[in-house]
Design a protein around this nucleic acid. Structure first.
Lengths: 163, 163
DNA sequence: GAAGCTCGGTTGACGTGTCAATCATGCTAA
DNA sequence: TTAGCATGATTGACACGTCAACCGAGCTTC
């Protein structure tokens, strides 16, 4: 491994101009992409990406309810972020928080009928948007490459930064 | 064309499970990536990604100043977003807003010495973070693929959604 | 010259995210 | 028993973004 990628990768501290260009392109573009998908979701269903993530998790949960901390872990959010978001969703009647019977200080998040309904309405157009804006943009090998890149990045980034 | 990509792509409305998995992976991972880079920047220099974008543009601008609208266009922000952000940056002494001599109602954004200093301090560690967290994670062909994917997505997304 | 237009920019309201502090509760140990 | 301590979650302060409304020049245009 000392010579596989010669001077390109050895002793260099900073990205080359080309690498930097790719970085900026990549980041900006994915930002546009996600915001475009979010805008479609909002338009089609009045849900944000956050709402959708929460509703998806609850919909798939047994009994359509979940401990708050489990939910946070499941969708990869900080607890405080989830708490704020649940507050907003509760105000809109999408979910309900109840004391957990089993765990002393645990809160249980329930999907309300209107939340389930909203999610059901949102699903199809959302998936279509993902197909139209993401999948359809890429050739099959590019799509595969996107998966590989995500995997490589995640591998490289490792778990949360020392926590 | 009826058979090049047979049932995979014809008459299908929704992404397959595999496509959906790639989408989620891709989005989540890029989110983690950018937030990790932003965290490093914050730690190294007390600047946010937004701050950095503004300071970069001003640093490279002739005379280190720029019309507000030109700046917004240059970094691809909405005017209102920029206005809010400039307010925060001005409070911290990173930039200064002055009336524009030439254009009637135009505001001109100036880089302050302390803003220039902050940017200079931030640049090197920031570039290093990009290299460590992004470039180093990918094999050369993956990096190239990332560039291609960004280009394909941008091409497909087109300019802003009918505006 | 007054009504209305556009242009450049700001403002307010509100949703969203992070961080640090707080809080209630149950456990453990002096 | 009570002084800590861990756990599960909420809260407040503040940065950040978007959207829609607004505002103050300068232009028309009648």
């Amino acid at each position: 491994m000392a010579s596989a990628t010669p001077e390109r990768r050895r002793g260099r501290q900073l990205p080359t101009a080309e690498e930097l260009r790719i970085w900026r392109d990549f980041v900006e573009t994915t930002e546009v992409l996600t915001s475009r998908v979010a805008a479609r979701l909002q338009l089609d269903s009045s849900l944000s990406s956050g709402d959708y993530a929460v509703l998806l998790a609850l919909t798939e949960a047994p009994d359509q309810r979940m401990r708050s901390s489990a939910l946070a872990a499941h969708i990869g959010w900080e607890r405080s972020r989830l708490s704020h978001h649940l507050g907003r969703m509760e105000r809109r009647g999408l979910i309900r928080r109840e004391e957990c019977a089993t765990v002393p200080r645990g809160a249980e998040v329930h999907l309300t009928p209107s939340g389930a309904e909203a999610f059901a309405q949102a699903t199809y157009p959302h998936l279509r948007a993902i197909r139209e804006l993401f999948v359809d943009a890429l050739a099959p090998d590019q799509l595969r490459a996107a998966g590989d890149i995500a995997a490589a990045l995640r591998e490289h980034l490792g778990p949360r930064p020392e926590e």
